[in-house]
Amino acid sequence: MTENENTTNDPIIICEDVHKWFDDFHVLKGITTSFKKGERAVICGPSGSGKSTFIRTINRLEEHQRGTIIVDGIELSNDLRNINLIRQEVGMVFQQFNLFPHLSNLKNITLGPMRVRKLSKRQAEEEALALLERMDIADQAYKYPSEVSGGQQQRVAIARALAMEPKIMLFDEPTSALDPEMISEVLDVMRELAHSGMTMLVVTHEMGFAREVADRIMFFDEGVVIEEAAPADFFDNPQHERTKLFISQTLQH
């Protein structure tokens, strides 16, 4: 495990006994955890175990029905002002990219800064171009999302999230929709982001990435976290039967 010199002891996300139901279906069954500033957490687990649902409660794309979530000192409630404040601090990257198809890549990125952070067009574009440069796709700025490859689209999506200058980044299987040769270009960007000290919650099946970058790996099963540990312990000394099975299965691939 790489030593993460960026983490501090202040928790930036606190979850206490978080429950979530879809109708009668109990998806999250009491998640209690916290994430420190600068921490890199990887979340894994079998399909349908509630990983996506959990990270989506943190920017309230899903509403939790019991327990508390506090993000950067603001409690998530139905108060719209709080939700919008938190969404500005929390960036999200989706499995299917979800870029805005009617806008150029550059405009995808500048929209938030211009409409939410109220930057001038010039300044927003300057920042966006710098971000695209950092993502290594400056030459794709004026194309439309449908005109670039999947790996490039996902990097545009990461740039779009970063343009809001978030304190936390959520990734929901960011490489799962990509062809193998494009996965590494996205992971490279995420690795760079991790080293810059960003707080990151990453749902992924990329165990190499997890081992290399994560401070902590959380294993979800049926709506609960059944095991969490530093990567070295998680991979080499798993405690739970389910975890052992999962690791042996994923490492086979």
Partner: peptide
Amino acid sequence: EAAQAVGLS
């Protein structure tokens, strides 16, 4: 969802 995640009202 993407629009909301960026903080658009």
